[in-house]
Design a protein around this nucleic acid. Structure first.
Length: 812
DNA sequence: CCTAGCTATTTTTTT
DNA sequence: AATAGCTAGG
């Protein structure tokens, strides 16, 4: 239908397409980028028109198919680079796509302005039509900190107990609403409870406040665009005309708002290709809707579904184990991964006494794999990764790796731009660029301490509100009118003058010029430079404000690191033309440059591991309550459990050659020791593809320690008769029986007898696995106070200690 | 206004 | 166990 008219119209208007429309059939001779595609990938690349769903299982080469498709679109003359919309979730994915398209084209993928993340593309659109959302096009993008501070103010102003109804929580709710494209007037009444039934009211006030601040939060970026598209058909039509082909990566992670965003744009040409894997949807907790991908064929009638099922990553055992686990989920689109790879190792399963023991064993196993003493090839540290469910699990591994000197890197964790000192510095920059940025003003008026406490700040607020000015103007007024006394007055005057001066300098900064010395020279004469490059300006701001000095005078151990980070921040500025450009960039790029992978074992969460692969993968902590996470199951029931199961699937499919699942019988949870049960996902691992390893230190009886599994806790949580009837447990026993003592090759350590709780008295000489020999100097319940000869006085659980005399009987 | 000490809290994470 | 955020006292 009209779809084809549009094409013809384009062909006529286009800058000469590489291949004229009339010769398309002839042109279908093999193109180099098609050569190494398998039939399914090729089908996905060639199905150019209409809606296409590319169901791409883990490791099936979806990025290759996606990038080849983009190149194919251009080579076939279907679209110019600027007529293709390619959306990803992360900047990293966008960058990779750009690179790979460029490589296939044999030139830089310049001129693909519509390749980016949902958020960066939305900013681009929103800047252009800001007035339709009641904003100016230079709106600022708030970070989470600002968002929460703003909400806190509103909650307090509404006379709501901020403790019972924390701002954080409301921020989460508002985020959730925005993910579902719900403006305040559309929030269902059923969800409007809480906050004394004023949740939506405050949401509305918040939106109002954002508008007056000329600011948006992350959720707004998308929601405003969707609202504009819905209300202004002409604007939408323009983009629909423009963007002939739409490609979406990780479609299973889209939320409702993103879905609407895409659907509105796709209604024009109806050429939308979504790539995803329903089995890898692991972001439901932040609004992603698996339903979007499950519903695709309904949403886009006539859709072609292409499954990519040949896996190029993992061995058959690993794939079979992953398939076995994911089969437990209902309502899947269903894929069967297959591979031509060698059979390889089975998935290895091992239980440990506790988390520390698990970390200890893992460390030794990594060393063994490095040496190649496991009957496999040798692996470097960079080939191996530990994937945990929750970040607190990382610590045990870090501790252990530090003591054995195993190099590691942690992926994820606090991001550079989220650090306090970086945000503070950014607030100063924001203030210099736009002095009316009240949130930035609030953040740093009293940082470093300027003697401007709650009272002074309240006065500034009142003054500003009185005459409808920004806080800076309010402060200026307050100083002028003498409304502020003593020491604070001079400080505030200085602060205001500083901002004025810096702002003046931003207006006349010059681009960085190659020869730094010229500027240095100017500064050295003691006369304030008339012009200044923005890097120098940033330094000046941090100096003059006293912010740098604040950290220099700080004696806490983290102060030097913070100064280091500030230096890095200033250095990062060099790559931008001005402060404005930098601020824009930072608000959208919240990611960390991850440390070099060289010669290091990677530690990260399962979420962070999506999209990555490693020859050797360790999956520790497979215990009910930890993984699957209790909280996830409590909050989202079966849906939550299924998402956890997909997480398990993601974890296993990260492994190329060796995958090791482990669990511990005891684990410290919030400082309390708890008995743990093997994860139900362990029961779901198909036995034929699993090999059970026996941990060193637990001889013969194997899992004797499991006698201490809390049967009652088990009853409560899972509702089964007792521990020994747990299928996972029974199977463990069976398997250990058929395969006794699998790997004591490098057995080390001590048989730990957990029943020996009361077996100690003050004055006993004991041995501890980690701390060595010591003398019992106190007993409190099941805990002992022990003076270790090497480690000093420690409190340890009695079960972790053996009579020193018994140690000699234990083989090392 | 500042800081020491207390209490409540504790997943996963991108933009 | 560790930490963040808050209250009370200086």
């Amino acid at each position: 239908m009209s779809q084809f008219d549009e094409h013809d119209a384009f062909e006529a208007a286009a800058v000469p397409p590489t291949i004229p429309l009339s010769q398309r059939a002839v042109a279908a001779r093999p193109a180099p980028y098609m050569d190494d595609l398998n039939p399914a990938q090729r089908a996905a690349v060639e199905a150019l028109d209409g809606p296409v769903l590319m169901l791409a299982g883990a490791g099936t080469g979806k990025t290759k198919a996606l990038t080849s498709r983009i190149v194919h679109l251009m080579r076939m003359g279907r679209a110019r680079p600027n007529e293709i919309l390619a959306v990803t979730f992360t900047n990293k994915a966008a960058r990779e796509m750009k690179e790979r398209v460029g490589r296939l084209l044999g030139e830089a993928a310049e001129g693909m302005p519509w390749m980016g993340t949902f958020h960066s593309l939305s900013v681009k659109i929103l800047r252009r039509h800001a007035e339709l959302a009641g904003l100016k096009s230079n709106f600022t993008i708030l970070d989470t900190d600002d968002q929460i501070r703003l909400l806190k103010q509103l909650i307090v102003a509404a006379n709501i107990d901020e403790k019972r109804w924390p701002a954080r929580m409301l921020a989460g709710m508002i985020d959730g609403w925005k993910n579902r494209a719900l403006t305040p007037d559309r929030v269902p009444a059923a969800e409007a409870g809480g906050y004394n039934n004023r949740g939506t009211e405050i949401y509305e006030q918040y939106q109002e406040r954002l508008r007056t601040l000329n600011a948006v939060d992350f959720g707004d970026l998308l929601l405003h665009v969707v609202t504009i598209f819905q209300k202004h058909g002409d604007v939408l039509a323009q983009y629909q005309r423009w963007l002939k082909y739409i490609l979406v990566d990780e479609y299973q992670d889209t939320n409702i708002c993103q879905y609407l965003w895409l659907r509105l744009l796709a209604q024009g040409h109806r050429n939308i290709c979504c790539v995803g894997d329903d089995d890898q949807s692991i972001y439901g907790w932040r609004g992603a809707e698996v339903g979007n991908i499950l519903r695709f064929e309904k949403d886009f009638p006539g859709a072609v579904v292409i499954k990519l099922e040949q896996n190029y990553r993992s061995t058959p055992h690993i794939l079979a184990a992953a398939s076995g686990v994911i089969a437990g989920n209902a309502g899947r689109l269903g894929k069967t991964l297959w591979t031509e790879a060698e059979v390889g190792e089975k998935v290895r399963l091992i239980g440990h006494w506790d988390g520390d023991e698990e970390a200890r064993w893992t460390g030794e196993e990594i060393e063994a794999l490095q040496r190649g003493t496991r009957g496999m090839r040798k692996y470097g540290p960079e080939d191996m990764a530990i994937l945990v469910r929750a970040s607190h699990q990382m610590r045990a591994f870090e501790d252990r790796f530090l003591t054995i000197g195993m190099p590691y890197r942690v992926i994820g964790g606090p991001r550079f731009y989220e650090r306090q000192e970086i945000r503070d510095a950014m607030a100063y920059f924001r203030l210099a660029v736009s002095p009316e940025d009240d949130l930035a003003f609030e953040r740093v008026v009293n940082l470093p301490k300027r003697g401007l406490g709650d009272k002074a700040q309240a006065d500034i607020q009142r003054m500003a509100r009185l005459s409808g000015m920004s806080l800076l103007e309010g402060a200026r007024e307050l100083v002028a009118s003498g409304g502020i006394g003593g020491k604070g007055a001079g400080q505030l005057r200085g602060f205001v003058e500083g901002i004025d001066r810096w702002h003046g300098l931003t207006l006349q900064t010059v681009p960085v010029i190659g020869d730094d010395d010229v500027i240095e020279g100017v500064a050295a004469f003691g006369t304030a430079p008339k012009t200044m490059d923005h890097v120098r300006l940033a330094e000046t701001i941090l100096e003059e404000s006293g912010y740098t000095a604040m950290w220099q005078n700080d004696k806490t151990p983290e102060a030097p690191g913070r100064l280091e980070n500030l230096k890095e921040l200033v250095k990062a500025l060099e790559q931008f033309d001005n402060l404005q450009g930098f601020l824009e960039h930072v608000s959208l790029i919240m990611e960390n440059e991850t440390e070099e992978a060289l010669e290091k074992v990677s530690i990260m969460t399962l979420h962070a591991a999506k999209g990555l692969e490693f020859p050797v993968v360790f999956l520790p902590g497979w215990e009910d309550g930890l993984f699957p996470s209790q909280r996830s199951m409590d909050e989202s029931g079966l849906k939550g459990l299924e998402e956890e199961r997909r997480l398990a699937y993601v974890g296993i499919t990260r492994a190329e050659e060796v995958c090791t699942v482990s669990f511990a019988s005891n684990r410290r949870v919030y400082g309390q020791w708890q008995s743990q049960l093997p994860s139900r996902f362990i029961d779901e691992l198909p036995p034929a593809h699993v090999e059970v390893l026996t941990p060193p230190g637990l001889y013969g009886g194997g899992y004797g320690a499991a006698a201490t599994f809390g049967a009652s806790a088990f009853d409560e949580r899972v509702g089964k008769a007792d521990v020994y009837n747990s299928p996972g447990w029974r199977r463990m026993q069976d398997r250990s029986a058929t395969r006794p003592v699998a790997q004591p090759r490098e057995a080390r350590g001590v048989v730990i007898d957990a029943t020996a709780v009361s077996a100690f008295a003050e004055g006993d000489r004991v041995f501890h696995q980690k701390f060595g020999y010591g003398l019992v100097i106190g007993i409190e319940g099941d805990k002992l106070e022990v003076d270790f000869s090497k480690a000093g006085v420690k409190r340890v659980v009695a079960g972790f200690v053996v009579d020193a005399d018994a140690v000699d009987d234990v083989p090392f």
